[in-house]
Amino acid sequence: MSNAPFVEVKDLRRVFDVSKPWLNRVLEGGEKQYLKAVDGISFDIARGETFALVGESGSGKSTVARMVVGLLPPSGGGVTIDGVSMADAAQAAARQRLRRRIQMIFQDPYASLNPRWRVDRIVAEPIRAFDLIKGEREIANRVGELLSLVGLHPDDGKKFPHEFSGGQRQRIAIARALASNAEFIVCDEPTSALDVSVQAQILNLMRDLQDRLGLTYLFISHNLAVVRHMASRIGVMYLGRIVEVSGGRELFQAPKHPYTRMLLDAVPDIGMTGRQRVPVNGEIPNPINPPSGCPFNPRCPFANDRCRTERPPLDEGVACHAVHERRIDVPVAA
């Protein structure tokens, strides 16, 4: 592993204009409104590892995913992958070469495959787009190989997406992501539309493929248990910011940020250990009018005046005044 991280995200920001149309603003009054979906987040991903972003709806995790792959231009900050900036115009040629190596797996396998295309054409699209293989017969062989790799039959290529179940479609989407020999795959909630038994198949498949092909994953999910199963490092997002980032094991054994603790407590306890849980307060505030200071302060039992006015920096893997000031004790990982 080289020293420079494979993927480097620095101070990434994205603002959406959510104002009413111009005419309505003039007639009804009201000002322009902006939504800070992603508000300055930074993280690194090493080659071959799985970094996860976990958060509830409105945390901005999917927006991060789209900016990292270049589907959405950032409002500020930047993404560098293998030394190539995703925004720098001078590196356009290098970025074009980089594109082949980055792929994405989407949440809804019913929407991510063109319903009018046969599966073999879908899987071959990246091969043709990057002109990786010459000759129809060679492409067909490669598509067959890819379908076998994800656990489908090569003959399945002749069918249409609607002839497959959700899990099988997600396998097709994975085959498409692998078709261009991608090295870095951004997975945006890849299993949240699937049933648990199928989810297990897909998660196992993704881990097997990572071992075999040395893939690097950015894994986006709202499901803590899934993230724990997949990721080596985890960033917890709340209202557009990363509030805590740490190794997978530590995060679950010794969560620092009060939000992380609350989130872990809220996960239904299938082990039925009868553990005592702290009641959860409130809901995520409207991201158009986020609270000042620490975004979590209205729900936080440890908030004080400083938390309500001053935004805590991400320090020692956690963005929390109470932790930094040692006002709350930090559990130690076993």
Partner: peptide, 12 residues
């Protein structure tokens, strides 16, 4: 089904 569910307690 029970074994397929990732949990917060089993080894990752």
């Amino acid at each position: 089904l029970m074994g397929a569910i990732p949990t917060l307690v089993q080894s990752s």
